[in-house]
Amino acid sequence: MQSSPYVLAPNSVSRIMFTVLLALLPAIAVQIWLFGPAILISLAIATISALGFEAFVLNLRERPIWPAISDGSAILTAWLLTLSIPSIAPWWLTVTGIFFAIVIAKHLYGGLGNNVFNPAMVGYAALIVSFPVPMTQWAAPDSLAHHYLDGIDAIHYIFNHRLPDGWSLDAISSATPLDTLRTQLKLHHSVSMIRQMPMFGQLAGRGSEMVALAYLAGGLFLFTKRIISWHIPLAMLGALALVSGIFWLIDPQYYASPLFELVAGGSLLGAFFIATDPVSAATTPHGKLIYGAGIGILVYLIREFGAYPDGVAFGVLLMNIAVPLIDAWTQPAPYGHKKDAA
């Protein structure tokens, strides 16, 4: 029997999920504009396989399929994973990542709401550990690529790994700016020399910096819609800026500037769209600050001292483990429990 309240705000899980998807559109548009339409094909592969895996597992678990499919959460996971890996990744790479995200990370833990780890990042981690090579072959921006993969060419490449005659993979792809910075530093080049390379732009990577700024715009949109709170993004970016700033001040020729770190790689996508995944994040206000700051610090440490070029996925996953502790330690004092208020 229903009891009070008898009215509900016009809100729903699917409304939240689709608003987040909407907030990703600017970045996707910028990516199409600067890197070609391959991302659309990868997004389609990811979306279809995510929905397929979701339906399949729900069927196995004898759960109603439609409510879960229509809540948009599987699509969001699919998009976030796709945007975290190369847009020209072969189809099986995307599908394998989605399998880990949806089947392992989401449903083995009990489905939406019960997953301890961020599903998209579990998918990413599985891929970078198992298939490191295709994970480094990113589409080069139009302005750098010798050739331009249009829609049909992209389909051929993604599904058959076939390029038009006379084209080489090197001509259309490149390593990420973070990767390049890392390998060049090992060759004892200074940051300022490395930044002269054509693949770098004003802030970070040429082209990719524009995509990153579009994530920032989408994130601010989500903030104004009150779908995310400021705590996690600000703490994560703040901690990243602080730690990278300290190293940069110590040796600016060996450590990139905080601005570069904030814009490069998955920093902004991670801060606004991935670390803020509510299910796997901390829940208390102070807890969110600790959680976000922890990710920011880990991202930097992994980038500088770890074995992987970017640290967002592992930073998020490591902090996911700490969430129950963080939440338990940071319970705010309820009304009437504060020491000094009364």
Binding site: Q2, Y6, V7, L8, N11, S12, V13, I16, P67, D71, S73, G111, L112, G113, N114, R226, S229, P278, V279, A281, T283, T284, Q331, P332, A333, P334, Y335, G336
Partner: peptide, 27 residues
Amino acid sequence: FPSPPPAMECIRCTRCAEVCPAELQPQ
């Protein structure tokens, strides 16, 4: 007063905690 849609799992979004006047963690 339309009848409420079926309940789903908690997604830990903490909207409830943001609006709770008793400053509890409803989730």
